[in-house]
């Protein structure tokens, strides 16, 4: 089973790199979908079945389709995008790599953080998560509905043509 983890990680990292490097935005969207599907595979490996299904529905089914719609609607699929200077690109890679190194160094010895606890394979199931969501996290859940409403109003307001 460890083999599956490394396979999925390789796919995720490669497709994430291709999102950054590919020339046309459509290709970036396709690679990002591949990356999200491999992350859904990771969720299944982690016994988070509900999260895997929600992830596929929300990200691959909704968000990426909206991205594709916007690209096609605005006819953005041009490959002659202006590029940043070579120096800026070089500095971007250097600073990203430095961030990676710093985070790795900061996260050393994470295994001591795990409290030895009885392993429970059922925490990722809908029944268990729903119980936690509707008892402990009731107020954040209601607040997120307000967030959705405000995001919807904001999107409509921004997308409206302003009359001169």
């Amino acid at each position: 089973m460890a083999f599956l983890f490394y396979l999925l990680s390789g796919i995720a990292l490669l497709s994430a790199l291709m999102v950054v490097l590919s020339k046309s935005p459509i290709n970036s969207v396709i690679y990002l979908i591949v990356c999200f599907l491999s992350i859904a595979g990771h969720y299944i490996l982690l016994n988070a079945q509900f999260l895997a299904v929600v992830h596929i529905i929300v990200y691959t089914g909704a968000i990426m389709v909206v991205f594709l719609f916007v690209i096609m609607l605005l006819n953005l699929n041009k490959t002659n995008e202006p590029h940043k200077s070579v120096l800026t690109k070089f500095m971007a890679v250097i600073s990203g790599g430095m961030l990676f190194l710093v985070l790795i160094a900061a996260a050393k010895g994470v295994n001591e953080m795990i409290v030895a606890k009885e392993f429970d394979a059922n925490i990722g199931l809908v029944a268990n998560l729903g119980k936690v969501l509707y008892t402990d996290y009731m107020i954040p859940f209601e607040a997120s509905s307000v967030l959705f409403l405000s995001a919807m109003i904001g999107a409509v307001m921004l997308g409206k043509k302003d009359k001169k």
């Binding site: 995008e81 971007a92 600073s95 790599g97 961030l99």
Partner: peptide
């Protein structure tokens, strides 16, 4: 996460 940061800095 780092690839995401690099992408934000890398592309226009």
């Amino acid at each position: 996460f780092s690839i995401g940061v690099i992408g934000v800095l890398f592309r226009r």
